[in-house]
Amino acid sequence: MLDIAIIDYGSGNIRSAQKAFLKAAESFDVRASVKLTNNLDEISKASHLVLPGVGAFADCAAGIQKVEGLWPLLNQRVIKDGVPFLGICVGMQLMALEGHEYHVTKGLGWIDGLVRPIKPKDDALKIPHMGWNKIYAQTAHPIFKDIKIGDEGQHAYFVHSYHMDMKTSSQCIASTDYGGAVTAVVGQDNYIGTQFHPEKSQALGLKFIQNFMAWRP
């Protein structure tokens, strides 16, 4: 039985993430408990960690810092213990070295990238990048198992004004196109992050969540 901890550090709408995990588990017949928690004990014991996040990078980083011991515990569990980890939206951005939103804020530093404003080449494109867009894999990854991506593929739901500017392309798993390439999925080893919202991406999202639950990095 999977023990999935969705980390609750006061950032916005995390119920949707929990409901989507429960729905994916039910639809694909996976036995899983899905908790919203900021309890360090529970996070220490979880088999899978999920870090959601909406709002500003600095606020979210401060939210994690406010839960005493959570920041080092995340490093411990993800980098040392190798527990499967999924960051969503700002939760994904927090995996970067730094966020450059309003001012510079330190991230978890697992992904060699900086979070910067999206700057589409076409000036007429609206910011936020809001709505359904396609994703293009840069490297094959089990997280996309049985999901049709690319030009003929399904869409994922995005809503963001900042994205991760990658220093190392090897950690960029997928991108989307919005007046140029925008980072959509990052990861390495046992950790992965999505700029889009799997919990809001209907069929593609539920399948993606199932793949995460089945992932044995």
Binding site: K19, K23, K200
Partner: peptide, 27 residues
């Protein structure tokens, strides 16, 4: 929010930031 996995906007009668929070927390 328990059954729909798509983005939902809710409006009407939102008067203060606290109302925004309540609706976001609801899903």
């Amino acid at each position: 929010a328990e059954q729909c996995f798509m983005p939902v906007t809710v409006g009407g009668g939102v008067r203060k930031p606290e109302d925004v929070r309540t609706l976001l927390l609801a899903g």
